[in-house]
Amino acid sequence: MDSFLDKLYDTFIFEDRWKYLVNGLKTTLIITVFAVMIGMVLGFLVAIIRATHDRTGRFKIMNLICKLYLTVIRGTPVMVQLLIIYYVIFASVRIDKVFVGILAFGINSGAYVAEIVRSGIMSIDKGQFEAGASLGLNYSKTMKHIILPQAFKNVLPALANECIVLLKETSVAGYIALEDLTKGGDIIRSITYEPFLPLLAVAIVYLVIVVGLSALVGKLERRLKKSDRG
């Protein structure tokens, strides 16, 4: 028992080592939150361009660019994308690594969000577009006020899942020496040569956040369901 308490002390308390975890968590959350924002904006844009092209034939060139983006991003591992953005694209620029992380994970997430949102738009009955048109609403107003709110509601669980995946995927940020939560735990391990406690702590922190996020989404879903009561 004493040896366990010693290990606990060694891992977290001695020399304020818990700060590696707290600071790492801060970085992880910052990257996740801003990457989610970029991913959502990018994803909705790409989804709207793709869906509009499929329905009306507009945006031919934009649609091609979007398709290329989706193919490249979804066809390569996020870690490789992160390394390329850091070591190739920003090779000759001194730049904040957190910014690189946000950009890389945001661009990556956008591709998945785009396909989720597009499937949501496609799931809306054609009659909803026609009802909007018959009232004199143009395509973009119909999209904004009629189609997207319904599509968003339909794909909310999938979008929330994407946020959770993104949060966990940021754990590879350590490969560009970004001190995120995972890296924080790993640093403690490399100092104490004791892997169990710091890595367990890291896992628990991820788990708590993910479970909390899932509960939040469940609540939001139930609120949106109000209009579905039969």
């Binding site: 009659g127 909803q128 026609e130 048109a133 018959s134 004199g136 143009n138 395509y139 509601k153």
Partner: peptide, 23 residues
């Protein structure tokens, strides 16, 4: 399309499957 939408404001339409906005 722009002028067409102005015309459509003056033509009400009722569909077989209602197409109310469920949200």
């Amino acid at each position: 399309e722009k002028q067409l939408n102005k015309i459509r404001e003056k033509m009400g339409m009722v569909f077989q499957h209602f197409h109310l906005f469920p949200h």
